[in-house]
Amino acid sequence: MQIKLLRLLAFLIIIVPLAGCSASSEEKKSLTISAASSLTDVMKELTDTYETNHNVSIKLNLASSGKLARQIEQGAPVDLYLSANQKWMDQLEAGKKIESETRRNFTSNHLVIIGAQSNNELTSLQTLANLPPESQIAVGEPESVPAGSYTKQALRKIHLWELIEKQLVFASDVRQVLTYVESGNVSYGIVYMSDAKISDQVKVLTEIDPELHKPIVYPGAVLSDSTYKQEATDFLNFLSTKEAKEIMKKYGFQS
């Protein structure tokens, strides 16, 4: 028994690193992209499309923009960073973590109010004020979740934030807002159009006027420590092509 275990251990020690070597010595280049979690579904399709036409394999690292930025600050080996807001990208740029000349906004999004399929119509953001005090509204946590901070800006602008603050449930990311509404645990949620599109269990009740908050744009940039700067730039360029824009549109993003 013990001998078998030892053999297995020896096998793992010797063979596994070898397997790793052989994989990396292949010609295919492996690109690591850290993308904001709101890009999850669209990025899967985009990278699949890209990989079939190019000789690279892409590893996606999905998390909130802030978390990804902190990983990069801590030296995570990432080639391309696709953020859901400017704040974190600015911070990385200030820390000279990105190649400034590659930075560009590749897509944009807008906020919508969602509710369960059976829900009553809300005609505008203002009508949130008419909700009974016991109905709760899920939004992203304003200081850490970009969608939450845009929501706060919009609600502030129409002087509604203080009024309905007690009815707000803060989620740790936009997908969680979606889950809260889907499961029926809150009546309303405020998410990106792109999130509302991927769920058939919620419906968009009303769109929020984009004039009420800073523009929701997604900046992308190649990282200074990247090993494949050219390949990363190529992918970023690909995001501006007509083909990529069609895919993004399908998922609720706008160019």
Partner: peptide, 9 residues
């Protein structure tokens, strides 16, 4: 703690 870290505070 979690949200303070998330917000960079």
């Amino acid at each position: 703690i979690y949200f303070a870290v998330e917000a960079g505070r």
